[in-house]
Amino acid sequence: MSSEQENSIPSWKVAVTYQNDKMTDGVGAQLQRVYGIYALSRLLKIPYIHSPLAKVDYQGLKSLEENSGNQGFVDAFNRRFAIKSDVAVPQSYYVIDVHSITTEAMDAITAQAQSLDRPVIVRITLPYGITDAHPASYECCKEISPFSHLPPNKERLRVAVHVRRGEMMVVAADRMLPNDYYIEVSLRVSRLLEEMGVPYSFEIHTEIPTREIELKPGENGIQKSIGAPRRLGPEASKIDEFAVIPNATVMANAEAIDCLSLLSTADVLITSRSSFSYLGGVLGRRNSVTLYNPFWHPALPGWISTANDGTFDEAAFRERIRTLMA
Rank of each mutant, 00 (worst) to 15 (best):
I9C: 05
W12I: 02
T24H: 09
Q32G: 06
R33F: 10
V34S: 01
Y35Q: 04
Y38S: 03
A39I: 05
R42W: 06
L44S: 14
I46W: 04
H50I: 03
H50F: 05
L61M: 13
E65H: 13
N70V: 07
F73W: 10
F77Y: 08
N78K: 06
N78A: 12
F81K: 01
A82C: 09
S85N: 11
V89M: 04
V89E: 05
P90R: 03
Q91L: 09
S92G: 00
I96T: 13
I96D: 14
I96R: 15
I96A: 15
H99P: 11
S100W: 11
T103I: 14
E104V: 07
A105P: 02
A105H: 15
T110N: 12
A111S: 11
Q112S: 15
Q112N: 14
D117F: 07
R118H: 00
V120A: 08
V120G: 01
R123M: 06
I124K: 11
L126P: 00
L126M: 11
P127Y: 06
T131A: 01
D132P: 01
H134D: 09
A136I: 02
P152G: 03
P152R: 00
P152V: 04
K154T: 09
K154S: 09
E155Y: 08
R158W: 00
R158S: 00
V159C: 09
V163Y: 15
R164I: 06
E167P: 01
M169P: 14
V171I: 14
D174H: 07
D174Y: 10
D174W: 01
R175G: 03
R175N: 12
N179M: 13
Y182G: 13
E184W: 05
S186K: 08
L187A: 00
R188G: 10
V189P: 08
S190D: 12
G197C: 06
V198T: 11
Y200V: 00
E203W: 03
H205F: 10
E207L: 07
I208Y: 05
R211G: 11
E212S: 11
E212T: 15
I213R: 10
E214L: 08
G221D: 07
Q223M: 13
R230C: 07
R230T: 01
G233A: 11
P234Y: 02
A236T: 12
S237K: 09
F242T: 08
F242C: 14
V244F: 03
P246N: 05
N247A: 04
T249N: 12
V250D: 10
V250I: 14
M251E: 14
D258E: 11
D258V: 09
D258G: 02
L262T: 04
S264W: 06
T265K: 08
A266G: 00
V268D: 12
L269K: 02
S277F: 09
G280V: 13
G281D: 11
R285L: 06
R286Q: 14
V289R: 03
V289F: 07
N293F: 13
P298R: 03
A299Q: 11
N308F: 08
T311L: 15
T311I: 15
F312R: 08
F312Y: 14
E314L: 07
A316C: 14
F317G: 12
L324K: 04
L324P: 03
A326R: 07
A326E: 12
